[in-house]
Write a protein that binds this DNA or RNA. Sequence first.
RNA 1: GCGGGAGUGGCGGAAUGGCAGACGCAGCAGACUUAGGAUCUGCCGCCUUCGGGCGUGGGGGUUCAAGUCCCCCCUCCCGCACCA
Length: 818
Amino acid sequence: MDAPDFREIDKKWQDIWHRERTWQVSNNLTESGGAAYVLEMLPYTSGEPHIGHLKNYAVGDAVAHFMRRNGRRVLHPMGYDAFGLPAENHAIRTGKHPKESTDESIASFARQFREWGISIDWSRELATHQPSYYRWTQWIFLRLFEKGLAYRKNAAVKWCPKDATVLANEQVVGGRCERCGTEVEARQLEQWFFRITDYADRLLAGLHEIEWPEHVKTMQRNWIGRSEGAEVIFSCVETGEQYHVFTTRPDTLFGATFFVLAPEHPDVLRLAAGTPQEESVREYVNQALRSTNDTRGAADKPKTGVFLGRHVINPANNEHIPVYVADYVLMEYGTGAVMAVPAHDERDYAFARAFGLPITQVITPDDPDGPAAGQLPYTGAGTLRSSGEFDGLTSAAAGAAITSWLAAEGAGCQTVSYKLRDWLVSRQRYWGCPIPIVHCQSCGLVPVPDEQLPVHLPDIEDYAPKGRSPLASADDWVNVTCPACGGHARRETDTMDTFVDSSWYFLRYCDPTNTEQAWDFNALAEWMPVDQYIGGIEHAILHLLYARFLTKVLYDLGKVPVAEPFAKLFTQGMITKDGAKMSKSRGNVVSPVRIVKHYGADTARCYVLFMGPPDTGADWSDEGIEGVYRFLRRLLRLGRELAETTQAPAAGDTHQIDTGLNRKVAETIVRVTESMTQKFAFNISIAAVMELSNSVSRAQRDGASPAALRHAVATGASLLFPFAPHISSEVYELLTGRRVWEDSWPLADMTLLASETKLIVCQVNGKVRDRVEVPAGADDAVVESAARASQAVLHALSDSTLLKTVVVRDKLINFVVR
RNA sequence: GCGGGAGUGGCGGAAUGGCAGACGCAGCAGACUUAGGAUCUGCCGCCUUCGGGCGUGGGGGUUCAAGUCCCCCCUCCCGCACCA
């Protein structure tokens, strides 16, 4: 008996599930059972599924099955994230049209999901590159456009020279393109943005309502980067222009002794023009703009900068302070300008020391003897000095007082700053959802009317990236009449970021075939929010933040009944091989196709779950999977043997052995149920069934009755069904004649668990000396005399004085002696 | 630097404050076998004078009892990082 056998069993049950559409659910509200929505992140379909996909869907499928067997009506759909750079790059490499290569990839994913036996409602399958889907992506874009949440602006943006497109801030990691690793460049371009910053506070607040891993919430909080402070206005002495800065420390305003602009600040060159410093400023800025994020980003790098030859007025004390350009100030954060308080900020201090600028201490540390006393820079709170009328106030009080004083003077106000930037959604690439806007010379930006959607992605010959959208060359497609005035107009030729496509797919699953609207509100009311979302940690910010944002927008528009899309989130850990991430270049890829072919689907699924807690990473072991394989074969063999055995063996005290086995069955039910309910400790669930199977083998040898053995194995199969659906179905059918998924989750016989006797651990001074059996619920005196009957206990007690006896009912007795 | 998490046998990992090491891998011994890379059985933390002693990164503490709770330290992993 080996893999070919498993493969036949796999096929037998997959055919039944396919033929009978077993996992299909309707939107019928009147059907019994509470609705539940279990969802794994949809796969990005470029290339083939890998082991990480197998784990992701094995986890999700276990959850879905467990909920179904506990009476829930579970929506468990599947789709494909089909547009985007990697698919397009893959197509360019292979010389195939992205539509063709993507559809091939989708077919491969779909086939393998079926071969893995994942319980999917296939009637709801979708792919984001289908016009029937992206029609509604465009519809959503237009709703944002109407609300002013989708807008165009000219901005310094991140440009990937290799992929020849702009990127969102979220897609730039350490100054490099998240996809291809190329260092990004800054470019000044007009682009489409989504106004996600309008939702910053609600995206933060919503985190309190959802059950997500704490570290994912933390990552989102850090990314949003909310920080409270004040805006202060500094006027240029020479030009009279006003410059706003953001500070979290308005209490240190009197200590601002110079002013710094980022090299990217649009006014830098103009300000320096005509000054003796003009040439050196120009040189510095050029050099700073050329230097990479890698070299510029280090916090311990020596401070550099150039005097602009201009001054601004510190509104607190009317002092004229010099303006510098320096690359330690970032254009991306705040206003690209800072007031520098060298006495109370590390960076400003380093700069002041390097350039010989004055350092004015305005905060006295509260603890006069503390290590901070007299040492600059001092970045903590304290009492104000050299700050005019505010002297003597604490930092907190002074911050508020100075801010209100600024507001009264018209020189500032209280404000909140965010690290989060608006979401840049346009891409100069072919393989994406067209933006449904036309540019009309007389009307400007005109939305394509809803009834003309979708704006089809044209089929073009040359889709290679060139730095402008390939769609621009599709003349027939680009030239249109303006929907507003009927005059000549041109279509928007950029496509949308793939993350727009995947930010709403979970809504479409609820009503996937609707041709009248994106979805029926009632369908969402039935299923949303997703009860359990499952995916990789790599989406902690990108996908999960965007999806939350779009859901909130649609909620505000009254289109969606919930403000948070994913009530619970589970992030699975990555499977590595030989301690490293699997990759073709390393040659350490474990192919799911090969594994499933060799061991069958259930072995593969159980092994990825048995490797350890599913939220932690684990290293693939070719030996490790053999253990799970052996276990499943043993289970099937037991099932087959017992299905044919009716005669009880003669030997042994059958009744006592049966009772012991039945108790083990009850214990296993409790153990598996708890390990699946409290956390997703599927490694424990599987281990518990392994124990049961070991107990069955022992009981069989010892002479248990066939009925008890059959009951034990059938229950084990039933408990294993969420992880190994094929073999479990087979064994369960052999032993009971029924379909395991049609029976509800096993219920433990609690009377068996409350056994008549208990094994009491006997300790002397906390050290275990023996174990004695007493009746369940025996009182302290009975336990003590039983313990005292033990030779080992008596031996340990000899030559000592008893100080105290601690008895924990049904568990333990501890003699404390001296 | 800031934030989050983790340190348990040769390995992956179990343990509502109550028997540390479940389950599996690897290893060792045996059975069956022409054969075994199949299957089954047993052993499997370290030390031991075989009484027992020691043992969950290190050090303290609370407790009758600590892998688990508290304090200090060390190491590793992940995220963010010149964020004003």
